[in-house]
Amino acid sequence: MIQIDYAEYDAIHSEDFVFDIPNGHDCWLLLLTQTPAIFLVDGECRKYPPNCAILYRPGQRIYYRACEESYANDWIRFYTDESYVTTAPLPCGVPFVIHDPSYCHNIYRLLVTEHILNNNFKDISVDHLLRILFNKLLESYNYKAVSPLFLDLNQLKLDIYHNPNKEWTVSKMAERLNISIGYLEDIYKNTFGVSCMNDVINSRINLAKKYLVYHNYTIAEIVTLCGYSNIEHFFRQFKKITGLTPNQFRKSPYQLCKKS
């Protein structure tokens, strides 16, 4: 069970802000920083970059302060006996970098909304949101060789899947990130386990399947809508990924979708 004591996002404090609770809270505290800050870790005050998370268990000393003109964070204070929190393999009292801060920030906004509105299914919603948040924190904490371009790569992947029909090429993607083609291919594959051009192909075939199932476009129209200039090239890639021709896929969409 989760019981939120207090939650806030985009909390902003002045440059003289200090938060010092020697005996800690009687509940859990989870912070997501938006600015650099100084934290007391192992008896020493250390400066940490923005977009860090830090989890304090009940009764643990809490000390952090601003180190620039202002300090901003998202934070939640809560009670729980859920094992995904109490036994989470996360360090308590030690900040670590979050590799998808905007995603986590959006979860905080939803948690605050649920806490304030107090809807009928608030407890279930809060539990699910907090589980997702802890999953994202675990992903960040366990992510080892993170590229400095991690956020840019994430945005590139999202743009590929949001706009499959664009004229994606490795050279254009590399130019967008201001890196060499070879370096892009290496870090993209290391980050996502698939090459950037294979992601382009996958995004286009996913879009084609949606058009085949839910729209009445002709195959020729779908080829153009999915960013292909050659219908034979589209047929080859579609069959390689799905094992079916577009026409075969369209004839039994609900049965065939399960196979692809």
Rank of each mutant, 00 (worst) to 15 (best):
Y254R: 09
L177D: 03
R61C: 13
C27K: 09
K251P: 06
N135E: 14
K172L: 14
Y63I: 06
I181N: 12
A174V: 08
A208T: 01
L130G: 02
V94I: 15
E68F: 04
S171R: 06
T80I: 08
L31Y: 01
Y79M: 11
I76A: 05
Q3T: 11
P58I: 05
R204D: 07
K144P: 01
P22M: 08
I181D: 12
I116M: 08
D10K: 07
N206S: 12
K259Q: 10
H115T: 11
T87C: 14
G93T: 13
E232W: 12
L137A: 03
H99P: 04
L40M: 13
E8K: 11
L110D: 11
L40H: 10
T33N: 04
V170C: 02
D127P: 02
D5M: 11
N106S: 13
L32F: 08
Q255M: 02
D26H: 14
I62M: 11
S140M: 08
S70G: 01
P58C: 07
L129D: 09
L156F: 01
G193T: 05
N118D: 01
L212V: 00
D10Q: 09
K210M: 10
V213C: 00
N154T: 15
F150S: 05
I76Q: 05
E139M: 03
R131W: 07
A145S: 13
Y79S: 10
K136V: 10
A88Y: 06
N206K: 12
A37M: 15
Y71V: 01
V194M: 12
W75S: 03
R131C: 09
Q237W: 05
L55E: 09
D20E: 11
T224Q: 14
I76S: 06
T87H: 15
L110V: 05
E114Q: 13
A174T: 10
Y108F: 15
G59Y: 09
Y214Q: 10
E8V: 14
D100L: 14
V97M: 15
K209Y: 00
R77S: 09
M173S: 05
Q237S: 14
N23E: 13
